[in-house]
Nucleic acid binder design. Structure first.
Lengths: 325, 325
DNA sequence: AACGTGAATGTTAACGCTAACATTGCGTAC
DNA sequence: GTACGCAATGTTAGCGTTAACATTCACGTT
């Protein structure tokens, strides 16, 4: 910076002013400084700036299962939005989702002096661990249940489940079976709730949901069991991956979809339209989730303290062959 | 730090020594300082440290299409390995892959004073843009072709393509058709090369590859065209997503797989085993790619300058129903 | 007893930047 | 013509850490 100042015959402070768009600099001076910066290839030292301003311009993201379509897309939205807001994103992905591992991740991010944190760790237990953060550091929880004093962004799981269940009933099914995700996942429970509510309202039989792990193989197993029953008319599977496994099991068992059984999933992964048959599903706008998370977080950072805020991202029912006769 | 020093009645420098595991500190003193740090909840200021050491402990990653299974998994491997090596990872994901956007990303990362960069941007053109980096900053290119003076990690695409093509021939096909990825992708070309070579060696007819975009819909279109021909015995599709689309097209056209046509893909996404029929494919160890990238990068960072290094990650043929009679 | 030696600790000065206050100089009012 | 105000720029200090050099002190050597 001193070099640039010398080059234009001004003080380093004026150079700093140009860099920070301070208004009290003559336009002509500003230009001269800009040119000198360019000529000398000067780059501001972010560590020095962070030291004196006490702002790292960094946001931390704790994520779990980041190779799945959903979290990966959310991460993508976060990164884009953070950049637009002038922040850099530091990722910390977990291999296991426990109180200890989340705490360790929080610790690592704190060490980096992040100004705020987004947690994509949709286990019900996460909320508790994070409540320690409330009042300390701005944070947003994605699909992690409500944490008093923090931001929360979630997809309207229940509405999606309701819509897809109603759709299956409308297609003539007497009732709808449900292959749920793991019980300790917030998203899984939201979907169970919506599904059950519609069945109750419609006076349809409510069978106990089958539990899967989100993986295709668990969907496959659920599919085998449902195929064996022989009295199933419609199945709402809690995500597209499991729905794929279920379709496979049905196919092997000679159960035709949608001929014998109607099937619907959740997520709308890019592959869903090309399953056999193309899968009816609920589209989640993961990128929007990422964007909204950053909005909520940046608001807190600007306020200089955590704030309780909530955002719900709407869903969209996508009807395809697997659920239409 | 001064507070800690005061607490134990020592100088701040001794505290610094404890923090940096300097040997010349009495074990007893070390313990006292550790305790005071704990008691006071002191956290070192990374900006101050970065300022004086001129080391940010940060590595940058430029990625493209990070919502796809491959890049997302690679990213995951990178993040894990970087953490183990004591580095923090800053992600910059691109929405478009052009010389300008890559340069902009490099610029943003440079501003963050990253100590090295990994580029997951598998277009042939990337190499040129990055060659400007050679000699400047340690960098590793993933699947981006060789860049003189930089590290490069790639999956052995050609070997994978050779193996899968030979497998299809072994199953009795007179020749193998190929649905390739976009021509400007390094991976796509590697697969074309391996495929063609095996056909040549076997004296089989080499048909012009059909070009897709990696997406299921492009695979679907290719599938329709191949189904129309009626003389196709086997197809090697350049990735699993396109293979899914192709399977769908075949299904609609009444072409049975593997009865009428043998099909194989590439990647081994988690869904592949549950396609209809389960898909023969080539497994890529994306996590290993991430790990190796960090190894190569850390080596350069330790050396204090870019080094030309190459790592090739092996592949594995996974035979499933789609290619076996 | 004086002296060197080396382990353990202390002191000082940067690192590159911004905040806060200080100075300059020019136009305007009286 | 002096005083004032305000825009534009300059000067100084300090953010929290580590590097480099300085000091102290215990101990063994001669």
């Amino acid at each position: 910076m001193a070099d640039v100042a010398r080059e234009v015959g001004l003080s380093h402070q004026t150079v700093s002013r140009v860099l920070n768009d301070h208004p009290l600099v003559r336009p002509e001076t500003r230009e001269r400084v800009r040119k000198a910066i360019e000529d000398l290839g000067y780059r501001p030292n972010s560590a020095a700036r962070a030291l004196v301003t006490r702002r790292s311009q960094t946001l931390g993201v704790i994520t779990f299962n980041s190779t799945l379509y959903g979290p990966a897309s959310t991460l993508f939205g976060i990164e884009q939005a953070a950049r637009d807001a002038g922040f850099v994103v530091s990722i910390d992905s977990l291999t296991a989702l426990t109180a200890t591992s989340v705490r360790a991740a929080l610790d690592r991010l704190a060490k980096q002096a992040v100004e705020g944190i987004i947690v994509i760790a949709p286990l019900s237990g996460t909320a508790e661990v994070l409540s320690a953060l409330a009042g300390q550091l701005p944070a947003v929880v994605v699909e992690g249940g409500a944490v008093p004093g923090l931001g929360a962004v979630s997809v309207d799981q229940e509405a999606g489940a309701r819509r897809v269940t109603r759709h299956l009933l409308d297609q003539g099914a007497a009732t709808v079976w449900h292959v749920a995700g793991p019980g300790d996942w917030v998203e899984a429970e939201g979907r169970v709730l919506g599904w059950r509510r519609v069945l109750r309202e419609a006076g349809a039989a409510v069978h106990r949901p089958l539990r899967g792990t989100w993986s295709p193989s668990s969907g496959y197993q659920a599919g085998r069991r449902l195929a064996d029953r022989g009295d199933v008319e419609a199945v709402f599977v809690a995500n597209d991956q499991m729905a794929l496994g279920l379709l496979r099991a049905f196919h092997e068992a000679g159960v035709r979809v949608p001929g014998d059984v109607l099937v619907a999933g959740f997520d709308d992964v890019p592959e869903a339209a090309y399953f056999t048959p193309p899968l009816t599903t609920v589209r989640q706008d993961f990128t929007a989730v990422g964007r909204r998370s950053i909005e909520l977080l940046v608001e807190q950072v600007a306020a200089g303290r955590p704030l309780e805020r909530r955002a719900v991202v709407p869903v969209e029912l996508v009807v395809r062959q697997s659920s239409t006769r």
